[in-house]
Design a protein around this nucleic acid. Structure first.
Lengths: 260, 260
DNA sequence: CAGTGGTCTAGACCACTGG
DNA sequence: CAGTGGTCTAGACCACTGC
């Protein structure tokens, strides 16, 4: 395959508007090609991708150029480099980066001491998307959507109540039973069973009071303030694939964030 | 100056413990040297640093090695690269990255439409550090500490109530008057007036109910849940330089976070 | 030991900025 | 136009892994 270091000016471009010259460096184009292979499933989560030398030959560029492309993909947590072994497709199933998107930590103990959360799937049903949910998931109002409700407990104390909405198409066949049966993070299940890999997410956080049902599930009085965490998670190509609304008890936990 | 690409094994190391070989690549060492120059004030915020070629000559390495060091410092927001112009010391005063650490956004409008916050310095007094404050700021209990209380309003609505604690030494001479007089972000004032540049921060977020004084200052009833945002901000060398406790109204704003 | 990623170099050329 | 950062190459060598 041959790659042109300069984007070719399409015929009929408008010279009035100073549209950016759209110069894209070679390594960015390589990055795009690797991304395509990831998206198409040519290389699956936890598998190794070809060596830098092989990729350089395949794309007819130097190793350094491939290297820079991989560097950026590794910085985005799409690939993981392991010296002496190779470069691998990142996954939510590895012990190391499990719960990468869960930022709730215990106030005192270190996160590893209390062990993993106990999960309790309350509900999993199919229904039609409301306008708001459709907008978040880039669907049409009335499209089929899966709703999941679950409670996470730490040391036996119910701490997180979550509602999830998933597009019906990609997640066809997801049931409460399969959720209960799976050992490991939900995003790992999405990868292995549905080929959906969550790449990034955006969260909007507010402080709220629970309604009676929420208070009951979390075992707190209704005047206990909770963190409301609304998340939209995206796969490749910035496609939204999950809307999630969590209610976090923060009496002995806190949402941790690092600012750079 | 000559730099050794391999760290020299100090005499008397213990062979029992498998202490990491402590191999540090050249560009990391260069990064450290640049960091030192930043910390010592050799190059001040918003100033340009020498060109890559100059630095390569100064440190007796190739341009590529300097480049990789600068790349990492730029990724950490300590430097800013501008093609064709040079590399500059980052600052909190630039329009572009103002309020880099403030993650509260309006629910509806875009952040730019409502303009900057109105600031109201309620209080600024000197006192002695409690044990908790001393621990956060790496001081000793009883050391001199400055406390600032202020309210930020958006579109005339009081939205953020903040208490800040600053080590007395580095911030000697800070008064409510100087805070009120300064136009621009507080962290910009810290840079220009006290030579303290905040580099990163950690936040712990909880949902709480205000006490009566807090409710009054934010003009909300006491059963209104608020976001409690506790921040420790660090300068170079991971030195804590500010403890801040914010109370955010989230009825028409939200704390925004992007997960990668 | 061979194969992988990681570092370092030297040189060429491109894109952007300002005088 | 000269000077800056940005890209790309080719080649050498180092560090780490597993057989």
């Amino acid at each position: 395959m041959t790659i042109h270091p300069f984007s070719i000016d399409a015929a009929g471009t408008n010279d009035d508007e100073p549209l950016t010259p759209a110069f894209s460096p070679l390594y960015q184009q390589i990055k795009g090609l690797i991304l395509q292979s990831l998206q198409s499933g040519e290389w699956k989560p936890s598998e190794g991708i070809p060596s830098e030398m092989d990729l350089a030959a395949r794309y007819r560029v130097s190793q350094g150029t491939v290297r820079k492309a991989i560097d950026e993909l590794a910085a985005d947590h799409l690939l993981v480099r392991r010296q002496g072994k190779g470069t691998f497709v990142a996954t939510h199933a590895e012990q190391q980066v499990q719960y990468r998107f869960l930022k709730l930590l215990p106030d005192q103990a270190d996160p590893n001491s209390q062990g993993p959360a106990q999960r309790n799937i309350v509900d999993c049903k199919r229904f039609r998307a409301t306008a708001e949910i459709a907008r978040s998931l880039a669907l049409r109002t009335g499209d089929s959507v899966l709703q999941v409700r679950r409670v996470l407990s730490f040391a036996g104390i119910p701490t997180i109540l979550e509602d999830l909405w998933l597009p019906g198409g990609p997640f066809k066949g997801l049931t409460a039973e399969r959720l209960r049966a799976y050992r490991g993070p939900m995003y790992a299940l999405f990868e292995t069973e549905f080929g959906v890999r969550m790449v990034r997410a955006e969260e909007k956080i507010k402080a709220v009071l629970p309604d009676s049902a929420q208070g009951q599930l979390l075992d707190v009085p209704q005047n206990t303030p909770l963190l409301s965490v609304e998340r939209v998670a995206y796969t490749y190509k910035d496609t939204p694939m999950e809307l999630r609304r969590g209610f976090y008890r923060t009496d002995s936990h806190h949402y941790h964030n690092r600012l750079n």
